[in-house]
Computed example of a mutant assay.
Amino acid sequence: MDEENTEAVELYHPPFVVRALDWIEGISSEQLIAAAQIKDQNKSGFIPPAALVRIIRRFRTDGKLELSDRLVAILITNAYDYVRRVSAGFEVGDREDVIQETMQTFLTELAENDGIDWWEVTFHRELRRRASDAYARLIGRH
């Protein structure tokens, strides 16, 4: 592949993230925390994880660290539960290694980037991809 002809993919927030960002403008911090805890995506007020990543990053850069930290705790719990479900078919020892590596990668990338990235566009696909990568590295070590 010729690197000179390779163009970077320009990422943008999908409509569901934009809608969530617009919606949170009119609610209080406590209402936002309550909405972030909704796990059923069909329930009113549900905030998709991709939008939650953008909200967390926005609050972090705006200096609303306490609110950002509260939302991070919710997002981490949801991500952990998701990765645990995705890796349910692995053996117990392998599963724990995959979960730990996937969560470490996620937390590092969440903390290091303030721009739009795949976590803000396709959150669950990224978690699955990171878990798959972690599993491949684990198998490669054996």
Rank of each mutant, 00 (worst) to 15 (best):
Q41I: 07
Q37C: 14
P49S: 03
E96K: 11
V72N: 00
Q41D: 11
A111R: 03
E91Q: 11
A79W: 04
A36S: 14
S87C: 10
R95S: 07
D97R: 09
S87A: 15
R58Y: 09
W118S: 06
E91D: 13
T122D: 07
I74A: 02
L65Y: 04
T105G: 11
N113L: 08
I47H: 04
I24T: 05
N78S: 07
V83M: 01
N42H: 11
K43N: 15
R95I: 06
I76C: 08
I47C: 08
V86C: 11
R60Y: 10
L32S: 01
T77I: 05
I24E: 03
D40M: 04
S87V: 04
R70D: 07
G45Q: 05
V53N: 01
T122H: 08
V98T: 05
D81N: 14
D81E: 15
S44P: 14
A88E: 09
R70H: 05
T77A: 09
E96C: 12
L71T: 05
I116N: 13
P48L: 06
A34T: 12
I116T: 15
H124I: 04
V86A: 07
D62F: 13
T108Y: 11
L67D: 00
W119M: 02
A79K: 01
L110T: 05
K64M: 09
Q104R: 10
I76F: 10
I27E: 05
I47L: 14
I74L: 04
I99R: 00
G63N: 02
E126F: 08
I56V: 09
T77P: 02
G115N: 14
V83A: 03
L67T: 01
W23A: 15
R125Q: 07
V53M: 06
W118E: 07
A111H: 08
T122I: 05
T61I: 12
S87F: 07
E126A: 10
E101V: 05
D94Q: 14
E91Y: 13
G45C: 04
A34M: 14
N78R: 12
T77Y: 07
K43A: 15
Y80W: 08
